[in-house]
């Protein structure tokens, strides 16, 4: 089968854009449209675009870790964000925020960390499922 030239070239420009956009979605998620889940989906679709335009094995090489581990790390980050309030004697998963907003990131707190965990988890799970599909073929 002859491969189209359009998709790989377009992917080269689209993929970084999508990844940056996914982080943008992640960070604005608390008070506006966006969030960890959508951000993660956008990032995962960027990775899948890469896998389709080159090959699934190229995506394997691109990933720093097995997608299973990425998913587990994401889950762990989310869980950890819930544990933080326990150190301050508050119930599990109480939202805690830092006082002064940081540059670029804005105001962050444990819900932000939770969202980051979701973001990583979604990337891991979606890539895992889709690579599982690709392996069969």
């Amino acid at each position: 089968m002859q491969r189209s030239i359009i998709l790989p070239v377009a992917t080269r420009y689209l993929m970084p854009l999508m990844l940056v956009f996914s982080i943008f979605l992640l960070l604005r998620g608390h008070n506006e449209v966006g969030g960890g889940f959508v951000g993660g989906l956008v990032a995962a679709s960027a990775l899948m675009l890469y896998a389709i335009s080159t090959s699934p094995s190229a995506l394997w090489k691109l990933l720093p870790l097995d997608p299973r581990f990425i998913a587990a790390i994401g889950l762990f980050i989310s869980l950890f964000s819930g544990f933080i309030p326990l150190f301050y004697g508050k119930p599990f998963m109480t939202g805690m925020w830092i006082e002064t907003p940081l540059p670029v990131l804005g105001k962050i707190g444990t819900p932000t960390l939770f969202d980051v965990g979701v973001y990583v988890l979604v990337i891991g799970v979606v890539v895992w499922i889709l690579l599982e599909f690709a392996e069969d073929e």
């Binding site: 309030p85 508050k90 119930p91 599990f92 998963m93 109480t94 939202g95």
Partner: peptide
């Protein structure tokens, strides 16, 4: 007796 936790306060 019955135990309750309110998650996230």
């Amino acid at each position: 007796g019955i135990q309750v936790v309110q998650v996230g306060d």
